[in-house]
C-alpha cells in the first residue's frame, strides 16, 4: 500500500492523483467494506487498500457452541439475499458426513426453493446496481417483483427472509396445499417484470456507458483469485457447480449456462439476467417432475 501522491501528465497538463476513502458506510455500498481509492480526476485508477470484516459476526464460533441441527439459523444469514441456498449447502454437508440420502420429493423442493432464492438474489443485485447508477425505476420494479417471491417463500417457510427451512435429512414441512399450482402464475408475473427491466437497462445509453469496460477481470485472473458463480462465468469460464458436480436433481433438468465474454460489469449484468430466465425454466421443469411422498428421511 502506498499513500503517496503520484504525478500524472495527460495532454501536456500536469496533475496529480489523489486518494479517496470510500466506506465503510457509503450509500453505494450494499454490504460494508472500505476502500482507499487512488483517483485520477473522477476515474478510479487503483484500489490501494481494502478493509473487510466490518460485518464479521463470528458464525464459526457461534456454531461451535450449538449442535448440528441448530446451526441452520446461522447459515440463513451468511448470504441473506438467498438464504435457502445456504441452508442447502450446510444440510448437504452434514448429510454427506452422516451418509444420508434424502427423499426425492425433498430434493425437488430444495431445487425449487434454491432457484427461487437465486432469482431474488440476482434481482436484488441488479436492482441495487441500477439504483447506484441513478436508475431508480428498475429498483422499484424489481423490489416489487421480489415481493411476489418473498410471499411464496413465506407461505412455505413462515419467514420472508431468514427461513431456516431445511433440516438435516429433509425439510421442515411439506409444501402447503395448492402452492405448486399457483407457482407458474407468480413466475409469469416475475418474468414480465424482468423483461421490462431488461428493456429499460440493456440498451440504455447511460447504463451501457457506466457498465461496459468497467471492472473488467480477465479469465486468468478470475481463476487465480478463485472466483465462482456469475462472476467467474462472466469472465468466460464455463463452470457451474450445478453442472460440474450435480447435486439435488440438477442432473435431470435441462438448463443453459450463460457465459460472458470480457468479464466487465455489463457482462455480469447479462449473465445474471439470463440466469434468472434459466432458473425460471428449472422451476417449471421441476413442477412437472415432482413426485409425492415423504419430505424427510424416516428413522
Amino acid at each position: 500500500m502506498s499513500l503517496t501522491v503520484e504525478k500524472i501528465e495527460r495532454d501536456g497538463i500536469q496533475s496529480q492523483s489523489y486518494l479517496l476513502n470510500i466506506g465503510p458506510s457509503h450509500p453505494a455500498m450494499h454490504g460494508v467494506i472500505r476502500f482507499i481509492a487512488r483517483m485520477d480526476g473522477e476515474r478510479v485508477e487503483k484500489i490501494e487498500d481494502t478493509e473487510i470484516g466490518y460485518l464479521h459476526r463470528a458464525f464459526e464460533k457461534d456454531c461451535e457452541q450449538v449442535g448440528w441441527g441448530m446451526a441452520f439459523p446461522y447459515t440463513d444469514r451468511l448470504n441473506y439475499v438467498s438464504p435457502l441456498i445456504n441452508n442447502c449447502g450446510y444440510a448437504m454437508a452434514v448429510e454427506r458426513l452422516l451418509g444420508i440420502t434424502v427423499p426425492e420429493r425433498c430434493e425437488y423442493i430444495r431445487t425449487i426453493l434454491s432457484e427461487i432464492s437465486r432469482i431474488t438474489d440476482h434481482q436484488t443485485c441488479i436492482a441495487a446496481s441500477a439504483m447506484e447508477l441513478g436508475a431508480f425505476t428498475p429498483f422499484i420494479y424489481l423490489m416489487k417483483a421480489r415481493e411476489y417471491l418473498y410471499e411464496l417463500v413465506e407461505e412455505v417457510t413462515g419467514a420472508r427472509l431468514t427461513v431456516s427451512y431445511l433440516r438435516v435429512g429433509g425439510v421442515k414441512a411439506d409444501l402447503p396445499d395448492g402452492w405448486l399450482d399457483k407457482l407458474p402464475a407468480v413466475l409469469d408475473k416475475v418474468d414480465k417484470v424482468n423483461i421490462e427491466v431488461n428493456k429499460l437497462l440493456a440498451r440504455n445509453r447511460i447504463f451501457i456507458d457506466r457498465m461496459k469496460d468497467v471492472g473488467k477481470i480477465s479469465r486468468e485472473k478470475a481463476i487465480a483469485y478463485g472466483f465462482t458463480g456469475p462472476l467467474l462465468r462472466s469472465a468466460g469460464v464455463d463452470f457451474d457447480v450445478r453442472r460440474a458436480t450435480p447435486y439435488h436433481v440438477y442432473d435431470r433438468l435441462d438448463f443453459d449456462i450463460p457465459i460472458g465474454e470480457v468479464g466487465d460489469n455489463y457482462d455480469r449484468y447479462l449473465v445474471r439476467m439470463e440466469e434468472m430466465r434459466q432458473s425460471d425454466r428449472i422451476i417449471r421443469q421441476c413442477l412437472g417432475q415432482i413426485p409425492n411422498g415423504s419430505v424427510t428421511v424416516t428413522p
Binding site: 473487510i52 464479521h56 464459526e60 461451535e64 457452541q65
Partner: peptide, 19 residues
C-alpha cells in the same frame, strides 16, 4: 489481520479463546 481490528489481542477462533 483481515476480519478483526489491529487492536484485537489473540486469535478468536482458537478453542481456548472464550466465545
Amino acid at each position: 489481520r483481515i476480519l478483526m481490528y489491529e487492536e484485537f489481542e489473540g486469535h478468536p477462533l482458537r478453542r481456548d479463546y472464550p466465545f
